[in-house]
Design a protein around this nucleic acid. Sequence first.
DNA 1: GTGGTCTAGACCACA
DNA 2: GTGGTCTAGACCACA
Lengths: 85, 85, 85, 85
Amino acid sequence: MSGPAPRKYNPDNKTGYEYELLAEHLAGLISSGEWIPGRRMPGERSLAEEYGVALDTVRKATRILRERGLVQTLKSKGTFVAHPD
Amino acid sequence: MSGPAPRKYNPDNKTGYEYELLAEHLAGLISSGEWIPGRRMPGERSLAEEYGVALDTVRKATRILRERGLVQTLKSKGTFVAHPD
Amino acid sequence: MSGPAPRKYNPDNKTGYEYELLAEHLAGLISSGEWIPGRRMPGERSLAEEYGVALDTVRKATRILRERGLVQTLKSKGTFVAHPD
Amino acid sequence: MSGPAPRKYNPDNKTGYEYELLAEHLAGLISSGEWIPGRRMPGERSLAEEYGVALDTVRKATRILRERGLVQTLKSKGTFVAHPD
DNA sequence: GTGGTCTAGACCACA
DNA sequence: GTGGTCTAGACCACA
């Protein structure tokens, strides 16, 4: 019943807005190379379900990543991990 | 061969386009009083999943109901069963 | 900065939905006489490719023109510029 | 300028209806294992362009394959190479 | 070879 | 968390 805590997004462990935490988490997936440049992120509904958050939270997190230049959104196509400069 | 016939939307039993059949089916729910005036219909995504059709098919069926004055759509709120004249 | 401005449909210069802009653009071709009454419009696929939009967007634009009475669609034949009243 | 003729669908070398020849050709791709079971065939427009034939020819050829049980068509999804019995 | 239906699924504005 | 727009592309009926 003990054992390693699952390596997992856990908003309860932190302070701050949930969308910022989610943005951090996703930024981590990118900077760690788990999501490689050019890869399409899961859709907003998938992410909302996967992380148990509202759609709006996912959208705000995505916006942060976009403003940081970490991802690029192509309308109706998806949001893609940006290629580093 | 006995037993209750499934009370179910069955596009295979009819001719015509699926969105028309779905529209008929939903119109039936309204005219039978199963869906009462003012009630919000299930969301498009729910209906698509429930009836096993694509979103667009649900949308076309809804459009027919709207054109017949059976429902009224409020953007960002949902589609509601209209009150009879 | 000099030179002829490209005579071209440019959705980026305007606001509103693409299918409305495309409808305006095509209505312009009709009202300017570039497309004369009776003429068949290019097929939906051609228009989609020419303007770089999806088929559905072309279809919605065509529907608008049809509802305004500017064109008439004959199934399996094409969409034709209407004769003015 | 001589040399091997390209291994290629060539309707001119045969007699019979073009859609039958195309059906034979495609059946060959299946029986030779070039198209494996479960694989989706190219869309009808791709095939028409690739083989330089009319859409209707592709559709008639596909119908033959379907009647022979070599392929299965799922509406709006595509035509798939059938799994052998 | 056209317009139509249909699938699947993306992001967006708005509440 | 809804309806809307939009992409991409499949097969189908009809002429």
